[in-house]
C-alpha cells in the first residue's frame, strides 16, 4: 500500500501570480528540492492529471507556471492561496546543471518553454561566477503572451537578452518581430567547444531552432532540449510518452539533441 507511485500528495498553495492572460505561476510549499528540468504530475481529484515542469525553486517552495489550455489546467486556475494542490513526482532527469558550469550558456525558449528554463537562469543569475557568459533568446506568439516580464527585465541587466514576438501589435515595446530562428545568428559564439545551447519550446520550434544552431556550427551534442510529450503516469507504465525505445517521463524530458534526433515519432 505504501508503495503506490500513482498516489498523489497534497501541497499547500502559497501564492498565485498572474503572468499573462492565460498563465499564472503557482507557488507551493515543498519539503524537497527537485532537479531543475524535472516535472510533476499535477493531480486534481475529480479532474485529472497533467505534467507540469518546475518554473522556480526556492528553499521550501517551488513554482509552477501553468497555462489554462486543458481541463486540468483550467481547474488549477480556480484554486486560491491556502488550498491544497495534489502532486506526484518529481519525475524525469532534469538539466545537467553541473555540466554547464564554466561554459558559455545560450538559452532559446519559446512560449511556455520559458517556464522550465527559468530556474536555470535564476541559478546562474545568482551564481554568475559559475559560467563564462549567458545569452537569452525568447520568442512569444504575441506581446500579450510574454511571460516573466519583471524577471526578464532583471535578467537583461546581467545577460544579453533578445525577445521577439511572432506577431507584433501597437503595445509591443520591443524592437524584435519574427520567429526565434531568425535571431539565432545574432548570438555571438566565440568558442564552439566550451558552450551549451538549451532549447525549450513547442516541438516545431525546438526542431527548427536546433537546426539553426547546427547551421551556425554548434554540434548537436552541445544542444540540450526538453521534450514535450504526453507524460501521463510519469513512471514508464502507461506508454503515452514513449518515443523510440525511450520513455520521455523516465529518460527525459531533457535530452541531448544528438539523442533526441534519433527519437522519431
Amino acid at each position: 500500500m505504501c508503495n503506490n507511485h500513482l498516489k498523489p500528495r497534497p501541497y499547500r498553495l502559497l501564492s498565485i501570480k498572474k503572468e499573462s492572460f492565460t498563465e499564472c505561476t503557482f507557488r507551493l510549499e515543498c519539503d524537497h528540492t527537485p532537479v531543475i528540468g524535472q516535472f510533476y504530475e499535477v493531480s486534481l481529484p475529480r479532474v485529472g492529471e497533467m505534467p507540469i515542469s518546475i518554473s522556480g525553486i526556492g528553499s521550501g517552495w517551488l513554482d509552477m507556471t501553468i497555462r489554462a489550455v486543458g481541463h486540468v489546467s483550467t481547474a488549477v486556475h480556480t484554486l486560491k492561496p491556502g488550498d491544497n494542490i495534489f502532486l506526484r513526482g518529481p519525475y524525469g532527469n532534469g538539466f545537467p546543471m553541473a555540466e554547464m558550469e564554466g561554459k558559455h550558456i545560450i538559452i532559446a525558449a519559446g512560449g511556455c518553454g520559458v517556464s522550465p528554463i527559468r530556474p536555470i537562469i535564476e541559478h546562474f543569475y545568482n551564481h554568475p561566477e559559475k559560467i563564462t557568459a549567458m545569452d537569452l533568446l525568447f520568442g512569444f506568439k504575441d506581446p500579450s503572451l510574454v511571460l516573466f516580464n519583471q524577471d526578464i527585465d532583471r535578467w537583461k541587466e546581467k545577460f544579453n537578452t533578445i525577445i521577439t514576438v511572432d506577431q507584433s501589435c501597437s503595445t509591443w515595446e520591443g524592437k524584435n518581430v519574427g520567429l526565434i530562428t531568425e535571431y539565432v545568428k545574432q548570438v555571438k559564439i566565440p568558442d564552439f567547444q566550451n558552450m551549451e545551447v538549451i532549447i525549450v519550446g513547442p516541438p516545431i520550434m525546438m526542431k527548427f531552432t536546433a537546426q539553426e544552431f547546427i547551421k551556425h556550427g554548434v554540434a548537436s551534442e552541445r544542444i540540450i532540449v526538453s521534450m514535450e510529450r504526453r507524460m501521463s503516469c510519469g513512471v514508464g507504465k502507461c506508454g503515452h510518452c514513449k518515443v523510440g525505445d525511450k520513455y520521455v517521463c523516465l529518460d527525459g524530458p531533457v535530452f541531448r539533441y544528438d539523442q533526441a534526433q534519433l527519437l522519431i515519432d
Binding site: M1, N4, H5, L6, V235, G236, K237, Y247, C249, L250
Partner: peptide, 13 residues
Amino acid sequence: IYLENGGTEDIYY
C-alpha cells in the same frame, strides 16, 4: 513494463 520499467512496480498490476 509493469514491474521493472523505470525501476518502479505498478502496485495495481
